[in-house]
Design a binder for these strands. Structure first.
Length: 270
DNA sequence: AATGTCCCCAACCGCCGCAGC
DNA sequence: GGCTGCGGCGGTTGGGGACAT
């Protein structure tokens, strides 16, 4: 078993190992994303002066640094939600995380293994929940022509609401479109947009389970809460980062006609 | 006080799907 | 259709705090 790590002079390492993120690294990453947004995880470490891999930066941001992340204990409701959705979805932690805004898949996965695993096995209350979910899914499914299974319906990666003119699956409601203008994201897979997508998909799931009226569904989507990154994309004093090149930004953001790159301020403006 | 053990959780790893070329 | 690069996901590892001996 692991012993307490000590330095050569016998002092404890104050919780910092070689691979742990230091406050300085966190600050660098946060400051960089705050200034330039998320444009390419692989190139971000070099541009921001970090010696981490892009994946590591992404993980750190997604699990720890992003402003909407919720820290601290899981509430009883959170625990029940995890238990129930785990019964239904299995180890699809990202899907379960989508049901708990502010919680990362990694955190939920850890919490499950640490606290809920045993409980989950003997949790009987979820049986009713699952029955209800499956039943509702089947009812919705019965209103559709295609024959995909209820699991597919619940976990679909593509929106099933008609007339969605969004960017790669994101509906262009005024709210969400505005947020994507602010978000400096290069593709549908970059976290900020993905967050919006996830938020959309979460509620899409819920909508699938709670309503079969298309107009109600669409109305609900437009009223979805969305996560705004505005606060972290405000310009700040230049910390000496390497900015993404305008050419690259032009290439990656030409899909957003209302957005342009302000070379003078190195920031996106409408 | 020193040593051993348990266990949480941050971080890593490898695989996969997707998009662009 | 194949290749490449990228991001996302789930499984696993190991650092280190808390507690026991």
């Amino acid at each position: 078993m692991m012993m307490m790590k000590k330095t050569s002079d016998g002092e404890k390492m104050h919780g910092r190992s070689r691979t742990s993120w230091s406050p300085e690294e966190d600050q660098k990453l946060k400051a960089y994303i705050k200034r330039y947004g998320i444009w390419n995880w692989n190139q971000m470490p070099e541009a921001s002066g970090l010696t981490r891999s892009g994946k590591s930066c992404r993980l750190r941001w997604m699990n720890y640094l992003r402003p909407d992340i919720k820290r601290g204990n899981f509430s009883h409701e959170d625990q029940e939600t995890i238990l129930k959705w785990h019964e239904l979805l299995g180890n699809r932690w990202s899907a379960i995380a989508a049901k708990l805004p502010g919680r990362s898949d990694n955190e939920i996965k850890n919490y499950w293994h640490a606290h809920l695993k045993k409980r989950g096995k003997k949790n009987s209350s979820s049986t009713t929940f699952i029955s209800e979910m499956v039943k509702t899914s089947e009812e919705v499914e019965a209103n559709k022509n295609d024959s995909s299974g209820s699991q597919d319906l619940l976990l679909s990666d593509s929106p099933k609401v008609p007339n969605m003119d969004g960017i790669k699956g994101i509906p262009t409601s005024p709210q969400i479109y505005m947020s994507t203008n602010v978000i400096s994201s290069s593709s549908s897979t970059d976290p900020p947009v993905e967050d919006v997508r996830n938020q959309y998909m979460i509620d899409q799931d819920e909508i699938n389970c709670s309503s079969s009226n298309p107009s109600e569904i669409i109305q609900s989507i437009w009223e979805l809460p969305y996560f705004s990154f505005q606060e972290i994309f405000m310009p700040e004093t230049d910390p000496g980062f390497m900015a993404p090149t305008p050419a690259r930004w032009h290439q990656e953001y030409s899909m957003y006609p209302d957005v342009c790159y302000d070379a003078g301020h190195e920031f996106w403006v409408n």
